[in-house]
Every structure is written in C-alpha cells, then in structure tokens.
C-alpha cells in the first residue's frame, strides 16, 4: 500500500489545484486589499490578517490565467512559507483530499506556460486531474520575473 498524502484543494479558472495541507494556514473570506504601488503585478496588495500584515498574490495572474469575473470575489488561501503568511487569491476552495502516491504523475504534457513551471505534478483522480502547486516557487516572485 502506497503512502497517502493530504492536500488542500481549490479551484482556479477551469483547473483543480492542490497544496500540501501542512503548508496551508487557513482560509479567509475576501478582505479589503491595500494596493501596493510599484509592486510586482502579481501582488494584489496587503491584507490585514488578524492584525498581521500579509501579502495577497493574485494566483490567476501568477499562473497567466484570465482574471476572475468582476462580480465574484476571490478567497484568501493563506499559506505559510519561511515563517511568512502569504495569501493566495483563489476562486473557491474544495475539500481536503487524501490521495495515494500511486496516482501521482509528472507534469502532464498538455500543460503549457507558467502553470507548467509552477506545478510539481498531478494526481489522477477519478474524474479529474489534481494539479499540485509548488508553493515556494509561487510565492518567490523575484526569481521568476527574471526567468
């Protein structure tokens, strides 16, 4: 029997993503975002996360996906990387899933562009693919803007 892993899942455009559950701090509804001038475009701004200041990254922009419709507000999926809380703006969140390592596949050939760079691989679920996001790379805006 292969090992099982837990992933926090969420939706973004037509994709189904997962982030290792232990990296996810919490999920918070949409908050006022303070715009940060001169910041990288992917940074939507700063939010007040229970009196701590966290950067909100527009995950759609980060992955080169089209923007969310104006009538919908994203959710904050707060991840913890190197001691910092960072909010990833996602369309909607799904369940926490236990998946077996047996189902793991390297990055599918069909994926192109930024999405491909920022994912670790995919799990073949029964009816869809779960793309696993490389959180460290996603929040490292400085290196990827050079690449």
């Amino acid at each position: 029997m292969a090992d099982k892993r837990q992933f926090c899942t969420f939706f973004l455009d037509r994709f189904f993503f997962g982030i290792a559950a232990e990296k996810v701090q919490e999920i918070v509804r949409y908050q006022n975002i303070t715009f940060v001038p001169l910041a990288p475009v992917e940074v939507r701004g700063l939010i007040n996360l229970r009196s701590q200041i966290a950067i909100a990254i527009d995950l759609r922009l980060r992955l080169d996906l089209p923007p969310l419709n104006d009538d919908r507000l994203p959710l904050n999926l707060v991840v913890r990387v190197d001691g910092d809380n960072i909010s990833l703006l996602v369309d909607d969140v799904g369940d926490v899933l236990d998946v077996s390592d047996d189902w793991f596949e390297p990055v599918p050939e069909t994926l192109t562009g930024k999405v491909r760079e920022l994912i670790l691989g995919a799990y073949k679920l029964e009816n869809r693919l779960l793309l696993i996001l490389d959180v460290e790379k996603v929040v490292d805006l400085n290196s990827s803007s050079i690449a």
């Binding site: 940074v43 200041i53 950067i55 929040v139 805006l141």
Partner: peptide, 12 residues
Amino acid sequence: KPLGKQLKQISC
C-alpha cells in the same frame, strides 16, 4: 510592521 520579502525591494 515589516513588509514581506516579496516587497522588500521597493525602496519607497
């Protein structure tokens, strides 16, 4: 409060 490292390079 400090800014995260993603914004450190903005000197303003």
